[in-house]
Structures are given as structure tokens and as C-alpha cells.
């Protein structure tokens, strides 16, 4: 069983985690904006533009949170 406290594997896990965190928020933000454009307001590209910006922000926030969490555990 690969030990979880092996620094190589632990670091790998954290790196993989942060990448997905950024991407997922971007997809959700953009998707919500696109859905609002298409089904709710017919507001051209603006919903998606705002959604993407919010998504990027949320993604960075999530990544930041994840980073803080493993900083504490050392």
C-alpha cells in the first residue's frame, strides 16, 4: 500500500486536486451564464461573459482554500 505520507504522492495528489478545482468552477460559472443567456433572458453573450468571470474567481477561491487546508496539515 503506497503510504499517503510519502511526500511525492502527497504532493502529486495536491497538485492534481488544485487543477481540477480551477476547471470545475470555470465550467459551472460559464455553464450557468450560458444557460441564463439561452433559456432565461436571451441576453446575448453577456450572461456567459459574466458567468465565466465569476467562474474564474470562484475557481481561484476554491484553489486558494484547498491550498490553505494543506498548508495547515503540513
Amino acid at each position: 500500500m503506497p503510504p499517503s505520507n510519502d511526500p511525492f504522492y502527497a504532493g502529486l495528489g495536491q497538485a492534481v486536486r488544485i487543477g481540477t478545482e480551477l476547471l470545475a468552477a470555470l465550467i459551472v460559472g460559464g455553464g450557468l451564464g450560458w444557460a441564463a443567456d439561452t433559456y432565461l433572458f436571451a441576453s446575448g453573450p453577456w450572461g456567459m461573459v459574466i458567468g465565466l468571470v465569476v467562474g474564474v474567481t470562484a475557481g481561484i477561491r476554491n484553489a486558494m482554500r484547498a491550498a490553505q487546508r494543506w498548508d495547515k496539515s503540513g
Binding site: T20, L23, A25, V28, L32, G51, V54, G55, A58, G59
Partner: peptide, 17 residues
Amino acid sequence: PIELVSQLARPLSLAVR
């Protein structure tokens, strides 16, 4: 909205990862 998106991103990132 930022917090809402970051909440909704949780299941997606969990599944996709």
C-alpha cells in the same frame, strides 16, 4: 454569486477528478 458557483463546482470537481 462567487460562493454559489464555488459551491456548485464541488460535485463536478469531485466527479471529474
